[in-house]
Design a protein around this nucleic acid. Structure first.
Lengths: 174, 174
DNA sequence: TTCGTTATGTTATAATATAACATTATTTTA
DNA sequence: TAAAATAATGTTATATTATAACATAACGAA
């Protein structure tokens, strides 16, 4: 079970109502990479060194990261890289559901549950930047149904809630 | 009552479950401007010529428009303008709830209901760009409640659903 | 009418993202 | 295996979106 505030995200996270998954601790990066490897293998896609490296960087980040931050890190690692290097890798990872992109602040974060494709709700703290991917009781399904009533077929749902996280609100109140 | 597909948006739109408001027809631009004037007056804010002109341009647009498109139109109108000219006016209009910004495609559109501040759901057609502001049964309230369970206080909800609109889907099927 | 405040003008630049084409690596097919 | 086809990456240039910083102008209050 994974919970807000906890830094954990376990495989058995039920993914049912009201669960939340924060960014992975560094021990868990390996598992995400393994999952990605398996998933690409299953789909007959090439999980190249570059793509793996970019996913690792995104996973290791404490918070959602910008593309140019990833670019800097790639360069620091000794690799020759330009913007397209990063964006192409990110596009691949996005298509495969391995990372999410936050439109409200142009950042990227690792998907907590690449195995089961899903649309998620993101809680983005405007103060500290901390971001949670939460899976709340059927909000996405409800949106899909309601869009259906307008004869609208959703391809992608971007649901990003900006506000104060628990910790920042407490600090703020004092 | 306003409905998807109809090009109308009336004052008595109940704004209750399952209503949708498309972009205003050009006859209705005047009403939106009047509402904005009244609203700024009530709030003791200056609805300057520039701000009014930018709101008019946004209202008149058939679809959500980019900032640099507005900039071009300002220049065509004979006014001297640079990026900050547009962005400052847009910031004002955003703060006052007179326009919305779509994060998924960096565009701006007139708020259909400036009188009653609200978070809305947007249906954005990936094919033709047509965009509807819809007010669906309590999705936003539900999001707020659920965020509350994570002790998260929403300041802004960005809910943007990308997909195929009714018309494009029909064309697509043939 | 002067002063303080707010809005706008103006120049420069930051931040995010893509186009286009060359090169390299991998996979497929003969 | 060699050649051809495909896919990925390298590289340069540039497009797009947005803001910083400071000068000037307009407005509102005293």
């Amino acid at each position: 079970m994974c919970y807000p505030g906890s830094a954990t995200m376990t495989e058995q996270c039920p993914h049912s109502d009201m669960t939340s998954c924060t960014l992975p601790s560094s021990e868990q990066v390996t598992r995400l990479i393994d999952q990605a490897t398996e998933l690409c293998d299953k789909r007959n896609l090439r999980f190249t060194r570059l793509r793996k490296q970019v996913l690792e960087l995104v996973c290791k980040a404490e918070q959602p990261v910008g593309a140019y931050h990833l670019l800097d890190e790639l360069r620091e690692s000794g690799r020759s890289a330009a913007p397209p290097t990063v964006y192409r890798a990110l596009d691949f990872l996005l298509e495969q559901g391995l990372v999410h992109r936050l439109a409200t602040n142009n950042t990227y974060l690792a998907c907590a549950h690449p195995q089961q494709p899903h649309a998620a709700v993101f809680l983005v703290c405007s103060q500290c930047g901390h971001t949670q991917e939460v899976h709340t009781g059927g909000v996405i399904d409800q949106l899909r149904r309601q869009a259906g009533q307008f004869d609208f077929a959703i391809e992608h749902a971007s649901v990003e809630l900006t506000g104060l996280c628990s910790r920042c609100r407490q600090l703020h109140e004092q």
